[in-house]
């Protein structure tokens, strides 16, 4: 729809532009239509180039180009100095895919992806419904639950690793409230560490989910609830038949962001568990594996190959997700310009 409007407005706009001082010498009256249109076209292209050019250039240079280079470096054994010469073909990839510590990291990432959705999703929806009511201090509550999301990963990591030490605040608090049996070694015990990580991730990111869902809830027209109430629907019926379906797009976008974030997880693990012990604590991720075996080992070719594997895994999951889950939501946004 916006396209047909666009065509119209171009048609409407053309004459005044031709009359303008910059119209390439074309004056209002008898300029041939083709020439006038051509100059307007040229002008439009120049505007597009001036406005979008810098963003596209920067994006290509600092985002796309490095990813392409990662694919190239990944075929070499390379210490990172001088041009890469020691071409090893797919050897790096063979090593990665047969390395059991990479398998572990991959498993951890998978666990984090699934548990993030399971732990945060339902809780965040429940809290969004809860907070979507008239209550005193509502905006303050919103600010406060968003605080963990706004705080830097470094601060979260530093604070939680101090609290979760065996002699830290959490164990001390558990003893104080009479649960001394619950005190464990939160960070080093391989059976527990990944759950501690999930606890921290949930704490840090659930506020974002709640705020996103609140925003989604507010875009649901009130009339639907009024109509349902007149028909005698109960609160839970309304939530199930109106809120959840209409919140669907928001939930699906949130899940997408959550999955991608979980696959790329680096900061929290690296800060809390440091460079070397994340593997023994059972919290290593593909990204920490990449940094440890790539840059820190001086094996840049290998590190780049890990980056490519990480990217391909994320891309496949993202494409599958877009194909089967997000398609109905993004269809309009992405294909609009192509509509015939």
């Amino acid at each position: 729809m916006s396209d047909s409007l666009g065509e119209n407005s171009v048609a409407v706009r053309t004459p005044p532009e031709g009359r303008g001082p910059v119209g390439g010498g074309a004056t209002a009256a008898p300029a041939p239509a083709g020439r006038r249109r051509g100059s307007a076209d040229w002008r439009k292209r120049a505007e597009i180039a001036i406005l979008a050019g810098p963003a596209i250039l920067l994006f290509l240079a600092f985002v796309v180009f490095p990813v392409v280079m990662a694919a190239y470096y990944g075929f070499y054994r390379w210490k990172g100095f001088g041009p890469p010469t020691d071409f090893v073909g797919l050897e790096n990839y063979r090593l990665i895919l047969t390395d059991s510590s990479f398998h572990d990291a991959l498993m951890h990432n998978g666990f984090i992806v699934v548990m993030s959705l399971v732990l945060q999703g339902p809780a965040a929806i429940a809290f969004a419904l809860l907070l979507n009511q008239k209550m005193r201090g509502r905006s303050l509550i919103r600010v406060l639950i968003f605080v963990p999301y706004v705080i830097a990963e470094v601060i979260v990591g530093t604070g939680w690793s101090l609290m979760l030490q065996t002699t830290g605040a959490v164990n001390d608090f558990l003893e104080k409230i009479g649960l001394p049996d619950w005190t464990v070694d939160w960070l080093s015990d391989p059976d527990i560490a990944i759950w501690s990580l999930m606890l921290i991730i949930t704490w840090k990111y659930i506020g974002f989910a709640v705020i996103l869902f609140l925003a989604g809830l507010q875009s649901i027209p009130e009339e639907l609830f009024e109509a349902a109430a007149i028909d005698g629907a109960s609160y839970w019926q309304m939530q199930r038949s109106i809120t959840l379906p209409l919140l669907g797009p928001t939930i699906r976008i949130w899940a997408f962001l959550s999955i991608i974030g979980a696959l790329q997880l680096f900061d929290l693990v690296y800060i809390i568990w440091g460079q070397y012990i994340s593997a023994t604590a059972g919290t290593s991720t593909m990204a920490t594996y990449m940094v440890l075996n790539g840059r820190l080992a001086g094996a840049y070719g290998y590190g780049n190959a890990v980056a490519v594997v990480l990217f391909v895994i994320s891309l496949i999951i993202a494409l599958i997700y877009q194909r089967y889950v997000l398609r109905r939501d993004t269809e309009g946004a992405i294909t609009e310009g192509k509509k015939k």
Partner: peptide, 18 residues
């Protein structure tokens, strides 16, 4: 939109070299 799928993590090593 595809850029959303190019997080810093993937590009960091070549970005560092660049």
């Amino acid at each position: 939109a595809a850029g959303l799928m190019f997080p810093m993590t993937v590009a960091i090593t070549p970005l560092y070299i660049m």
